[in-house]
Amino acid sequence: MIDDEIRLALPAAPDFARLARLTAAGLANRVDFTYDEVEDLRIAVGEACLVLIGPEGRSGTIDLVFRITTDGLEVEATGRFEADGSVDHPSDLSVHILDAVVDEHEVLASGRTVRLRKRRARR
């Protein structure tokens, strides 16, 4: 089965991270996440955006790809920025937050892509 895929491109500004979170929440609901799991994913997607664009935002876009898998959701957020230079290493706090709310997360070598994976708890 081919996983469903949803793509979203947003200006790389903190205000628009809300849309990314809202989309994530909508999809999480589609795959029957509980309230707590939806909150976890919202936190994770917000954090991924923060890691990429920082608190002030950058000029450019964030491309988000959401994949609905059989057991949950995958999110890939990629920053496409006008200025050169890679993104800062995620702070310890960001890593702790992501650890706490998703099953898997990684920052790809380029430093401009954050990948998240969250599975639905077995019920």
Binding site: L22, A25, N29, T34, Y35, V38
Partner: peptide, 30 residues
């Protein structure tokens, strides 16, 4: 933890509205 559908049913509203309301925590402190 309840599902969004359970919350929507109890609040007498749609699931979309529940999700929007959850995000509102963020919005009015943005």
């Amino acid at each position: 933890s309840p599902t969004i559908a359970e919350l929507a049913r109890l609040a007498g509203t749609s699931e979309e509205d529940v999700l929007e309301a959850m995000e509102a925590a963020q919005a009015y402190r943005s």
